[in-house]
Design a binder for these strands. Sequence first.
DNA 1: TAGAATCGCCAC
DNA 2: AAACGTGGCGATTCTA
Length: 615
Amino acid sequence: MREFLTISGALNRVQATGLRAKATSTAKANELSETPFTLISSRQDAESALRAISGASILGADTETTGLDPMRSRVRLLQIATPEHAFVFDLFAYPALDDAPLRELLANPEVTKIFHNAKFDLKMLLYHFKLEVRGVFDTLLASQLIAAGRSEDRHSLAAVVERYLNQAVDKSMQVSDWSGQLSELQYEYAAKDAVLMLPLREAISERLAQLRLEAAAQLEMDCVLPIAAMELAGMGIDVKCWRELVTNLERAHDALSIELRRELSSGIPQLSLFDEPPTINVDSPAQVIEALARMGIKVEGTRSWQLEPLAKEHTAIARLLEYRSVQKLLSSYGLAILDHIHPVTGRIHADFQQIGATGGRMACSKPNLQQVPNTPEYRSCFRAPAGRKLVIADYSQIELRILADWSQDTALVKALFSGEDLHCVTASQMFGIPLDQVTKAQRAAAKQLNYGIMYGLGAPGLAARIDCTPEEAEGLIRKYFAAYSGVAAFLRESADRAVKQRESRTRSGRLITFSFDGGDRAQVAATQRLGKNAPIQGSSADIIKRALVLIHDALKPFDTRIINCIHDEIVIESAEAQAAEIAALLDHKMVAAAREFISSVPVTVDALISDAWLK
DNA sequence: TAGAATCGCCAC
DNA sequence: AAACGTGGCGATTCTA
């Protein structure tokens, strides 16, 4: 067993144990560098290390890996720190993660393991050692929760250590080569990162408690493992199907492009019939505006909502809109997505940012599997492999149900209990007419209001969407709030609170803070809209995250994995024979998750079994 | 010439 | 969109 005393090796261990939150930052810095560590490279080392660790209920933890991709790199070091001592397991020297005691320690939810960005380490440990780490405390997620939407706060380990411990951290070794012979400095660096987690958690936990964020934090910590597993599982894509789709789109794109250039050039005299179409770049809004001006069409911009009203009048504009939609699909969802197919698994392993939006929603990138066009052509390319099925489940109108539960609006609650088409019920309540007399236009208006009202939709916005005058829209909004006066009061209070207290909370207690110039009317109005929307959108995120946790745990006995999560929808891939059982389980767990946050209105989940990602 | 800003649009 | 919220991302255009 190799014993190391870092930097000031002369100091004894009694001194080194003194990791106390109340210590000054300077003292802390010294103490950190004094915590001794032991390199574990044999069975005997591991056994004695486990004896030393086993009494602790909170451990600093970290891993060093030979790369960032779990499927193409290996875990070299596992570092575990108690306040007294750190242990660096060199897994190349001795495979300690094959030993039951260490596995049990990591899997034990009663023993807290503190990581920074635990998703990374959990993926590595899950992939290489089939080990589900529980009892996670993630200082990255905690820091994001505390930031509560302040985008200026950074959350790298260095930034967080600086903020909470007022201490600089050396990350120079992070990208060093962890695959060969390691230097003493590398071991020391590795040990330090784990040791650092302990005081960092103390400082962060104190802050979480001050802000009453413990429950929200627990929800997030529980969610790391399901999300790590989801990323590892990845989503299968039918490459041939996708290529065909892209080829068809390219054909349409090329034809539309030529036609469009011709139509947009009607103001330019063409020298001869055999000339190439003019070299106008139809992807350039500036050039399109110029071309339209030559044709006598004046537009402020070329966004679809600006062009839409003119499309009936001018075929060139209709063509432009058509071209745009194809161009968008091609550029954003073209062959580029195939670059994300993993060479080892043949699947797409997107990157989910657990706290991606200020309200707590997840975000997804590389590629963004939350924005695949919702058309059969696209979605049918995401298919279950042979012998397997996709089980797709989504909440029905979850945000409206949160709004109803939160506001306790009698009419909205009743409408949700009725089980009737909600937009029809809303229309009937707005216009004071029986359900069967609701017209298409009335239902459309009610639908827009149901969807838009909690985002702070105003009369001009509604008018633009349902093709009526702002005055008429104003009247419709009045009718809506007359029918749902509890919703009106709730949203007003939410908006006021956001402006006055500069913060809101979701149902889990997640905090969202607002910074704005109170003297700026536009900024106040924007904050009011956020005050209405953020708690509801964020509570929806609370619910789906809770659902991920319940489902991940419940799925354990099955040959099944969560493969995507799109705000109110969860996609699972399962063995064909189990699909029906899984669908029922999904439904049950998603309802149970929602029940933890909303209890006074029904919650409905639509679950279906399919070969592809199709509804 | 690389990165930032802008425009535009997909998802929920 | 002096505007209904949250994101990611691609092409063009601007900037240092």
